[in-house]
Design a protein around this nucleic acid. Structure first.
Length: 544
RNA sequence: GGCCUUGUGGUCAAGCGGUUAAGACGGCGCCCUCUCACGGCGCAAUCCCGGGUUCGAUUCCCGGCAAGGUCACCA
């Protein structure tokens, strides 16, 4: 077989000499141990938690080793392309403080560009042509129908499906048959002529999973599709070699095709990068665990967290606690240290899939938000409200001084311990509604109307805005005592039968009258913030 | 179904042949307290199941079972 001639027929024209790629895309000059990692999304416009999960790992490894993180776009499948997707990826990750050093739409060093695979078509073809010349790749004319018939046959025979061994019909086509097909204008793909043997296994060291047993690839996989664009497998090998990736961290769904990639690297004469396959995030669905799904789980989408008003820092902290089991302890010990100081270790990454736990995220959110200053909280809430809040909520931000007072109260900034009332911006903004016009009656009074009025009237009569917290509370106690309630909790607990209730019941009436709810931060402060007029107004309006 | 991977409380997990089997979230209870939040204390709850190896297995080996991944001209 004249492979030289075949190669020219299949991919006519001059292609650069392969050696020229090695000089055009030289080895990177980086310190010893530096890792070059990448993110290689397809431009579907959908960036999800799993992407963020992998992105954080790649970013940490690259930057803490003095290496590089780049963005490559895998747009080999046109059907998946969505306009603006690349910008969306960059913006979404930037929101979580993940920055690329180079790559699509990043600017900076473009030595290794182009970053879009479609724009690299000539490069891939040059390598494919070389493979054909060497007899390591061949054209395949099988149609989709033939392929699916083959698959059905194999399934029926309980055999491994695919294009391999005796089933690789076009692998052994004679020269005449090939040229007849070509002359007839039949479309074709280029397949790898695999030299592997699926009965042979070998051990591969995965940076995350440790030693794994893999079977040699014996599939004659498609490397160049009929449109002249490579498949993922082939583009991966060429790009990660030429872009000088040292470590590929990707989802574990790729582990199964690792043998293909390894054979490709070998046949192309490329040094293999290191690989780390990480588990995917799972979710509880009824009784069983399953991978987070785009269709069923809104929380998979990164935009979900923005809409709900989760602080990006909190989400990142949660991701990190799932990513490295010792991170949580470190972060608790040094809450003020920047995340970048944590020594991220790829070998600490979990080998099995973690269940996404919203309770845990909420808890982390609460504590991260409680560490903000009132001013930072103001900015955070404002930012959220003007993107997702109602007009009414946006109006909260008109009087900055007033809102700051509210936030200081709700965050407990004056006390020794911070309050943790806020979980998300959405919830926080709703929470502080009673300081503004929003006076929904959230909780019901638990006393009868007569007592309610009696308490309200008594308080109104004694209320003095100038009272300090002590004097204020002394009056509440006095009212309690007058109405047959225990002024001291101690007394009430010691002898509950002797009273109608305790001061807490009296305070509750006032609290509901002022805030609409049975639970709130310090009532005296709330009334101070609201101002005398509004406080009195609410108290009298609460009479029945 | 084949192949690969993984199996420690409800969840995330430490653990690497001898431990009262850490810790965090959640649950429950108590304390603090005018309510809530914070904080403190405590409780319940775990080594998937069989066989081995060993003086001794959660830890090592084998076999089950279960879960997840994957078997495209998608990535």
């Amino acid at each position: 077989m004249d492979y030289e001639h075949l190669a020219e027929r299949l991919l006519p024209g001059d292609y650069p000499d392969l050696a020229s790629f090695e000089t055009r895309y030289p080895s990177r000059d980086l310190p010893k141990g530096a890792q070059v990692t990448r993110l290689a999304p397809s431009p579907t416009g959908f960036i999800h938690l799993g992407n963020l999960f992998v992105a954080i790992a790649n970013e940490r490894i690259a930057h803490q080793s003095g290496g590089k993180l780049y963005l490559r776009i895998e747009d080999t499948d046109l059907k998946r392309k969505v306009d603006g997707a690349v910008e969306a990826v960059i913006a979404s990750l930037d929101y979580f403080n993940i920055r690329f050093d180079e790559g699509a739409e990043i600017g900076g060093d473009d030595t290794y560009a182009p970053w879009y695979q479609r724009q690299r078509a000539e490069i891939y073809r040059a390598y494919v042509k070389d493979l054909i010349r060497r007899g390591r790749a061949y054209p395949c004319f099988c149609t989709e129908e033939e392929l699916s018939a083959l698959r059905d046959e194999q399934t029926a025979n309980k055999e491994i499906t695919g294009y391999y061994g005796k089933y690789a019909r076009c692998r052994n086509l004679s020269e005449e048959e090939i040229y007849q097909n070509l002359d007839a204008g039949k479309p074709f793909v280029i397949r790898l002529r695999s030299m592997g043997d699926s009965s042979r296994k070998f051990t591969f060291h995965d940076e995350i999973k440790g030693d794994v047993t893999v079977t040699e690839n014996d599939q004659d996989v498609v490397i160049l599709k009929s449109d002249g664009i490579p498949t993922y497998h082939f583009a991966h090998a060429v790009d990660d070699h030429l872009m000088r990736t040292t470590l590929v961290i990707r989802g574990e769904e790729w582990l199964a095709s690792l043998p293909i990639h390894l054979e490709l690297f070998d046949v192309l004469g490329f040094a293999r990068p290191k690989y780390g396959h990480n588990c995917s995030l799972m979710k509880m669905d009824g009784e069983s665990k399953r991978k987070l799904s785009k269709r069923k789980d809104p929380e998979l989408s990164l935009s979900f967290y923005r809409q709900e008003g989760y602080h990006p820092f909190a989400v990142k902290v949660y991701m990190l606690t799932l990513l490295n089991s010792d991170f949580e302890e470190w972060h608790m010990k040094y809450p003020e240290k920047p995340l970048e100081e944590f020594k991220f270790r790829i070998e600490k990454m979990s080998r099995s899939g973690a269940l996404f736990d919203l309770d845990k995220l909420n808890d982390i959110s609460k504590t991260e938000l409680s560490r903000l200053s009132a001013e930072e909280m103001f900015a955070f809430l404002k930012d959220w409200s003007f993107s997702f809040g109602s007009e009414q909520e946006q109006a909260y931000f008109a009087d900055e001084e007033y809102l700051l007072k509210v936030l200081n109260l709700c965050m407990g900034t004056s006390g020794k311990k911070r309050r943790k009332d806020f979980v998300t911006a959405k919830q926080a903004v709703a929470e502080i509604g009673y300081f503004f016009g929003d006076r929904v009656q959230k909780d019901a009074y638990r006393v009868d109307d007569g007592t309610r009025n009696a308490i309200l009237d008594a308080f109104l009569a004694k209320y003095d805005y100038a009272d300090d917290a002590q004097a204020w509370f002394a009056k509440v106690k006095e009212i309690a005592a007058n109405l047959g309630y225990a002024a001291e909790m101690r007394d009430y607990k010691a002898n509950p039968e002797a009273y109608k209730g305790s001061v807490s019941d009296v305070a509750e009436v006032l609290r509901i009258a002022v805030t609409g709810r049975a639970n709130s931060p310090d009532l005296w402060t709330i009334m101070q913030i609201l101002g005398e007029d509004r406080a009195r107004e609410r108290l009298s309006e609460a009479r029945v």
